[in-house]
Simulated scan of single mutants.
Amino acid sequence: MMTRRVMLGAAACAALAGCGSKFKSYDGPEVTRVVVMKSQRRMYLLHHDKVLKDYRVDLGFAPEGHKRQEGDGRTPEGRYVIDRRNPNSEFHLSLGISYPNTKDVEVARAAGQSPGGDIFIHGRAGKHRGKGRDWTAGCISVKDREIEDVYAMVRKGTVIDILP
């Protein structure tokens, strides 16, 4: 009798642990493009020209204009690709953006600066909740439960257009 209770309790704990995972699965249409509209603070996941999901986003602490150099607090503008996935992100989960591109590097170097890097779409990871709008160093942030969906839907190599 005691063994049966222990086994049922262990099975229930295992089932509940699976429900709490930050890793979700997705079997819908492929996300072929991500579009971020900075002025609207919106991110759209698209399958060709059809919006699959959209999210409110926070940006860099200086959101106006294109990122020019490391530490300027701006979110880049232009066409990039999702080039890496970080399941162990300090910000819950994150998807890397291929900033800086060749032109970004040239512009920054011409000004005697570093273009910076490590631009991601990421969550808030609890400790960043309540920071208000546009708090990142240049990244694109959504809520933790939303980055779980984005992480499941968006693959490495997906185009991301970040527009003013």
Results as ranks from 00 to 15, higher is better:
149 D>E: 14
56 R>W: 05
78 G>T: 12
111 A>G: 02
37 M>H: 01
128 H>K: 15
107 V>Y: 01
128 H>C: 14
138 G>R: 01
152 A>G: 03
34 V>R: 06
37 M>C: 01
156 K>H: 11
53 K>S: 00
84 R>L: 12
15 A>I: 04
55 Y>V: 00
136 T>G: 05
20 G>R: 11
163 L>V: 08
102 T>D: 11
164 P>H: 03
143 K>Y: 09
24 K>P: 07
110 A>Q: 08
101 N>S: 06
63 P>N: 01
56 R>M: 04
144 D>N: 10
123 G>D: 03
52 L>M: 08
31 V>E: 05
24 K>C: 11
158 T>F: 10
119 I>S: 03
21 S>C: 09
14 A>H: 05
50 K>R: 15
48 H>R: 15
15 A>K: 02
35 V>G: 01
60 G>I: 00
121 I>H: 05
146 E>C: 01
83 D>G: 01
85 R>Q: 12
97 I>L: 07
92 H>K: 10
135 W>A: 04
136 T>Q: 04
55 Y>E: 02
134 D>R: 06
115 P>N: 07
86 N>L: 13
36 V>T: 02
11 A>V: 08
154 V>K: 13
48 H>S: 15
137 A>T: 08
129 R>Q: 13
162 I>R: 08
87 P>Y: 09
65 G>L: 06
9 G>A: 13
106 E>I: 06
45 L>D: 03
78 G>A: 11
13 C>T: 13
35 V>P: 02
53 K>G: 00
83 D>N: 07
75 T>Q: 04
117 G>H: 04
84 R>S: 15
137 A>E: 10
82 I>H: 13
54 D>V: 00
45 L>C: 06
91 F>N: 04
48 H>N: 15
5 R>G: 06
42 R>C: 01
149 D>H: 09
58 D>N: 14
126 G>F: 04
68 R>A: 12
146 E>Q: 04
30 E>L: 13
34 V>M: 10
49 D>F: 03
9 G>M: 13
160 I>A: 10
80 Y>L: 14
132 G>P: 10
43 M>R: 00
87 P>D: 06
61 F>T: 01
114 S>L: 02
16 L>N: 10
25 S>Q: 09
46 L>H: 04
137 A>Q: 10
65 G>E: 03
120 F>A: 07
159 V>P: 11
48 H>E: 15
79 R>A: 10
24 K>W: 13
20 G>S: 11
60 G>N: 00
43 M>C: 00
141 S>L: 07
42 R>H: 05
16 L>Q: 06
3 T>I: 14
153 M>T: 07
35 V>D: 02
20 G>C: 14
69 Q>T: 07
36 V>Y: 00
17 A>K: 14
